[in-house]
Nucleic acid binder design. Structure first.
Lengths: 350, 350
DNA sequence: ACTTAGCACTCTCGTGCTGAGAGTGCTAAT
DNA sequence: ATTAGCACTCTCAGCACGAGAGTGCTAAGT
């Protein structure tokens, strides 16, 4: 445990360092915050903080820099979680209302807004259901022996694929197949379709298999598909004097499997999780912090969002922003895509 | 016009520079290519090439670097457009066969394959029709007063949007509306729908307007939506010693309106177009070259693809690769999404 | 008339040096 | 417990210097 004064000092060091990106010295901090102590006293305190591992020294005659442990302590105990100012909230809410059209577009907008608000990179995954259920399927002919298979899944997800038939086929026949399958598979999951005993013609099985595959892919997907925005915000920061650090980060972020880097799956079901520096599993992320939050309804449709930036990050603001935007997204999901299919309507307390 | 020997020399300078990224000196080139002349002779020739603006001098005692004009001459007259080696073609074709599922995904794969093949950044736009026609629409209820509107357009494009109704509405009613609108608007364009005199209820107009808006957006879109891949390939190149050049390029490429930077619209309807350095309209692109090609059927469904990289680019290889991949994409479009709707079937020579 | 050897010249770049500046840690005095 | 004072350490910008690469020119050779 830290003495009050040391805790206070750590807090000042962090806020100064987060602003200036330069190691902070004893004199600077006394001047900057009008402390009622001399630099020498501060130096003594700093020495103790360093002994305990909260701050460190790039080299002998440099100022102090917060360590991962220092940030962690700050986030847990020191930082006062201020709510976002009303006008910031208003701005964000306003940007959200430009959303529209398709789900993908909407998620991407969320990532962009978040990235801009926290001046770091942001990742937002597509929302995902526990297990998707077929709501409706449609077959539209586009060529003699090719047709477009469109699936509407629960929670307003739409999937499509071109389907090739071994032989030419008429639209009437396509419609008949679609009707039959709609009846047979309404509200079923991929697994249920796979186990189905329904009486189907060979052509119908051809389609049904495609349906099952698409749905399986959709279920596997979810967290793996994510929108990334604001990489530039991060690369702009002064820690990237050398361009190979930039390349490293790009490497990490550009490959599509963000999931491996950011533990979307392991976060608590509610609230914001912070991973600082070496707390991240992946080596490549040891110089970065990640602020993650789920959004949506934990039992229904849900996704996750994260902010990625250098450990030198404005944690308080970032956490508030992530929390606020996650809240907004949950609201919107509830409004537009809320769980309310036939089964739910008929048996609300199932 | 250049003498044979000078042209030959220019060609060597370019190929050496493209490989090494370092200004090439007279002696280097003699040694490297075993020329039957002394460095002094080469120096004389180089001086002439420089006078004529084909190469230039970073500073007095540096080697020569090709200028935009030099590259241009090389591309027009010197370069021998080799076909791609069979095994490279095979690799690319193979990677393409992992494509599947949705159009978006497929285009993105194309961008990734292209980027990898030419070791530069690649942009591929979504294919676009002259004017989209409605093939089928579908209304699926998702909440009491919200439903999902799914449009299938010609050429297998699918659009979706959540539609809010002023009042709760039953699925049967939705289906009825959809049926009626399908009849009324089958095969029509957005403009035709706008002018339509069909007898519709107020609710039906509500839906019809949404349909028209979505289709208009789709028509406006097309070239504006594009997938970008391989930025990292470019940033890795030695020209980016300083990180602010990297930031500049990122700025240029990350903003979504690639269309403004790359003249997809202005390229010739067939074949590959090359824009070298300052030939690009945008200032930000003056140090980069762009190799562009349309794909698809110029009269039907078509898109465009481009490679972006430093002017120091392996033009011959890049052009062949772009041409080959554009060809592949055209083939696939023809196979899967080829223009062949009812009207075409019934009146092939319209 | 073309080619080439020779040479002086120019410019860059890496290296090592230096002094200023920032910051520390310790000691002794308050 | 605090602080003034001071020696010490380390970085960094600036500068000089020499090596290296490459040029352009001239004069001689073919």
């Amino acid at each position: 445990m830290l003495t009050d004064r040391r805790a206070q000092l750590l807090s000042l060091i962090i806020s100064e360092y987060v602003d200036s990106a330069m190691p902070v010295g004893s004199e600077t901090i006394v001047r900057r915050f009008d402390l009622p102590f001399s630099p020498a006293t501060i130096r003594n305190e700093m020495a103790r903080l360093e002994e305990d591992g909260f701050i460190s020294h790039p080299h002998t005659s440099a100022g102090r820099v917060p360590s991962d442990k220092g940030y962690r302590y700050y986030v847990e105990a020191l930082m006062q979680p201020r709510d976002l100012p009303a006008e910031v909230k208003e701005t964000i809410r306003h940007q959200f209302h430009q959303a529209g059209r398709e789900e993908d577009e909407w998620i991407q907008l969320a990532a962009a807004v978040l990235a801009r608000a926290v001046e770091n990179a942001a990742v937002v995954t597509l929302p995902r259901t526990a297990e998707s259920r077929l709501k409706r399927l449609e077959l539209v002919g586009i060529q003699d022996n090719a047709s477009l298979l469109v699936l509407v899944l629960q929670q307003a997800r739409v999937k499509q694929q071109v389907l090739i038939f071994p032989e030419p086929i008429e639209q009437e026949q396509l419609t008949a197949i679609a009707n039959h399958l709609n009846e047979a598979f309404r509200s079923q999951t991929a697994r249920e379709i796979g186990r189905s005993q329904a009486q189907l013609t060979q052509l119908e099985w051809h389609v049904a298999n495609a349906v099952r595959e698409i749905m399986e892919a959709a279920d596997r997907g979810g967290y793996d598909e994510a929108y990334l925005e604001g990489v530039r915000n991060v690369l702009q920061k002064p820690e990237f004097g050398t361009s190979d650090k930039m390349l490293n980060l790009l490497d990490v972020l550009e490959q599509r499997n963000l999931t491996r880097l950011i533990p979307f799956r392991e976060i608590s079901a509610e609230g914001v999780t912070v991973m600082i520096g070496a707390e991240n599993d992946q080596d490549a992320m040891h110089e970065y912090s990640v602020v993650i939050s789920p959004y949506g309804n934990p039992n229904g449709i849900s996704g996750a969002m994260a902010v990625v930036g250098p450990t030198r990050m404005h944690y308080s603001r970032t956490i508030s922003t992530v929390r606020y935007i996650a809240g907004l997204m949950s609201e919107m999901l509830e409004t537009y895509y809320g769980e309310q299919d036939e089964r739910a309507r008929r048996a609300p307390r199932e």
